[in-house]
Design a protein around this nucleic acid. Sequence first.
RNA 1: GUGGACGUAGCUCAGUUGGUUAGAGCGCUAGGUUGUGGUCCUGGAGGCCGCGGGUUCGAGUCCCGUCGUCCACCCCA
Length: 427
Amino acid sequence: MRNHYTFRGVKGMRDVFPEAARAYQAWEARAREFFARYGFGEIRTPLVEYTVLFERGVGQGTDIVNKEMFYVPSKDQDEEEGGERDRKMVLRPEATASVVRAYVEQEVDKTAPGVQRYFYMGPMFRYERPQRGRLRQFTQIGIETLGSASPAADAEAVILLHDLLSAAGLPGLTYLFNAVGCPACRPGYIRKLQEYARARTNPLCEDCRQRLEKNPLRLFDCKVDACRAVMAGAPLVQDALCSECRDHQRRVLGLLETSGVETQIEPRLMRGLDYYTRTVFEVVAEGLGAQNAVAAGGRYDHLVEELEGPPTPAVGWSLGIERLLELAPAQEPATAGPDIFIVAAGPDPDRLFYHVTALRRLGLRIGLEYEARSPKALLKKADRLGARFALFVSQTDPETIELKNLRTGKQFPARWDMLDQVVRETG
RNA sequence: GUGGACGUAGCUCAGUUGGUUAGAGCGCUAGGUUGUGGUCCUGGAGGCCGCGGGUUCGAGUCCCGUCGUCCACCCCA
């Protein structure tokens, strides 16, 4: 790799070459298969949104909004005087806010009333310091179900995720669940939590003292021993849920149990995005280092209203392909090699090119080198590519050819206009 | 944003207490095979030792800075 080079790729962003791209394609194909089964349709939203969308959607107090945004300079900013602040644009850090924005903007509740099921796949951008399992541009696949408050919607989403991950044969996944309450019970819980913590501020670290006021639920995330000790005795959301939330959780977990999805209650599990209500969950994997969440999601019953839409309960999740890829290193079958690899020393290359084009137009995969090389080198290449046949072209006459079956080693004279048939019959 | 580790052929890495033409394996390439692959043998190409400065008679080896990568914190997919 060139170390002193002007035209570097951007930090935390990767180039994906064909071999690695196959692994992405495999995940995308598998996901599409499952989405079709469950009735989810693809939605494609822009990579750029106005900043306010995420400030409102993801939350003002979150790290994603406060320090992880990729700002996009725009002409709008220069041209529009005055209110340019809310015209600021960013690369999307996640997709849920965009999907909801699109849903509200198009008034989908009026044009297509009822439950909407969407899936998306594409790059997300977060300005973080890269480390294992964390890129600045990464790829998410996710779903959003809008318009249902039913526990069945939560369960359906999780089962889809579970079956998709299981189909990939990933070992060592744990499905963690928690409930984070709703407007009826969460405010009361947060007050209790703050009361508890305020009475014990002394041992808390600097960060936690700030969290206490700004984002008290995050107190549970701290890894400082002293803070953990304090929080070990803190009141839990689970004990403060209203009867509706409690009932919702019970029914979701019940549906998952009958569907054979093993779940684990994690009473201190919190999410970094503000919009979640009731159900939150996270799928964690072993052996991924510090960034071990491969998928996460939950219910967000008030986000649509928050973005000026009609009351619309919703639930969704997203998974990070790159982390999944690290878990199951490319075991995808290699793409099929050429049907025929041309071995020619370059007599009348134009005539040869004509024949090759004709064969490709018949649907055959033809491997061809542009420069004349030794037969040995060409055969070697054909072998590496997994070609089924090698075609020897006479040095003196491009019409005189011999076809060699690289599996059996048998070689025999052939004619250009018969190749298509021979290759297909040999299947 | 904070902390730590590491930058030597395309890749994985050696490189003695600073010492003269910087090495290995794999890969690439050519030949052995008077045009015929996957094994084997022999040869060849390929190095701003990340970059800049300093110490020294002499620096890939030591010091400072810088850029980059990785890991961890923070946070998250």
